[in-house]
Design a protein around this nucleic acid. Sequence first.
DNA 1: AGCACGATTAACT
DNA 2: GTTAATCGTGCTC
Length: 199
Amino acid sequence: MTGSAQKVLSEDFYHRETLIVARELLGMRLVRMDHGQRISGRIVETEAYCGEEDQGCHCKAGRTPRTQVMYGPPGRAYVYFIYGMHWLLNFVTEPVGQPGAVLIRGLLPEEGQQLIAARRKGQPEHRWMDGPAKICQALAIDGALNGQEVCRGDGELFVERTPPPETRRIHTTPRIGLDSVPEPWKSIPWRFLLKGQGN
DNA sequence: AGCACGATTAACT
DNA sequence: GTTAATCGTGCTC
């Protein structure tokens, strides 16, 4: 086993409460393999979507072709299309049969800047991946990755463990874009942000 | 078979 | 602060 493989978050990491996974993903390094080259960034913003009871979660509709992957094993990508033009990346959490996912909303670029710049044409570096759809654009992520394992170092997409950030750098707010979702789901603070370096 | 709406973004004023 | 762009999904008829 190589050194880098040991740093890759395994299925066990995702096989936990969605809120825990969303919080602990902050600071970790998301890696996208692009034709043998690494594109990566530190995760600085996430949101938790927690099962059928959560009226902000797609799983409120139950098991459908779209939500199927969230009911499957953890450590998979849930990638879906929205607003007729954008892809969004999530990681599936919780045991099989218990749906949940963490939306990746913000990354600070670390590797592959040249490749990112080519896809985020004309944008300044601090705007490259400061939104969930921008991440998918920068990392060339679309529906083809839906359902793929993200807990293997030899995959196209995975996360590497980093030293945990200081607790005081972690902030929470309500989730974004759930205006028509009923309370308490609309206001519950399930958005997690890592502050303090570059944001 | 048809339709309303959305876990967004960029480009406006 | 506002708005258009654009289409898959899930619900209704």
